[in-house]
Design a protein around this nucleic acid. Structure first.
Lengths: 133, 133
DNA sequence: TCTAGTGTTATAGTTAACTATAACAGTAGA
DNA sequence: TCTACTGTTATAGTTAACTATAACACTAGA
């Protein structure tokens, strides 16, 4: 997980999205415990309530189950559920907007998608940065 | 312009983005006046101050000039400025995130391009490919 | 039982975004 | 001058997001 936050979305939603990404990437498998509310809060220097709120979203989506005194655990079937739901959400809401932006900027989706397919999933970084001493 | 708002970003920023889109699309040309603060506020049922805040962003970016008593006008060179700035921002900030999501969801270029092939002049790609194994 | 780890709730305060309402300030044209 | 548009500022209130601090409730293991 990254240690920084984006100002374009509330922290609790970004937190939710990160866990989702970890599930999809297989970093968190079904049955695994989530990092504890307190730990996450400490590590990212965020209020425990904010972390809880992010986690609660996952509970509401039935991706995660909470066991008091024990922790929060990835539900069985979570990854499949996510793949379906997130795909649909992405195609219906995000991609149309992104695609419009791409055309507006005179870029081509094809090039972006191809150029990126060659890279490893880790290297999702644009080379805007010059080397620094 | 659309009449609805997204809950994922503040209204004033969405407003700014819409004007930017209109400039890039050539709906608003250099020298043209923006729709007036009061009109927009009325049409979208939003507070005038919120509209002003969105417009002020454009002024701060030097895309728009404000003439008291007259209105706000698209600056000369605004489109060029935007193309550069927005491209860089998109490639550096948005695309990496989107691209990661695409891979995470196991979506393919083909799937994504088909949906809006109708819009893009580039995407007249009648290629055939193997169905998934 | 005690301890150290879990999730959860309570209380209270700050800030950003948005709202309603109103007034001020400048420009063009009848 | 009067009218009807513009942008701009002032005042004050609501809500959502986040914060700090503390306590409560539960579980596993020594």
């Amino acid at each position: 997980m990254d240690r920084e936050w984006n100002d374009s979305q509330p922290i609790y939603r970004q937190l939710r999205d990160r866990v989702v990404a970890m599930i999809l990437d297989g970093v968190l498998k079904e049955g695994d415990p989530l990092p504890s509310v307190r730990n996450v809060a400490a590590e990212y220097r965020v209020n425990p309530l904010t972390v809880l709120k992010g986690y609660q979203q996952l509970v509401d989506e039935q991706l995660v189950e909470s066991r008091r005194g024990l922790g929060m655990f990835i539900n069985a079937g979570a990854r499949n559920l996510l793949l379906k739901a997130e795909r649909q959400k992405f195609l219906a809401e995000e991609w149309p907007r992104v695609s419009a932006t791409i055309q507006r900027l005179g870029l081509t989706a094809k090039e972006l998608l191809n150029g990126d397919a060659a890279r490893s999933p880790e290297t999702s970084n644009a080379d805007e940065e010059k080397k620094k001493p």
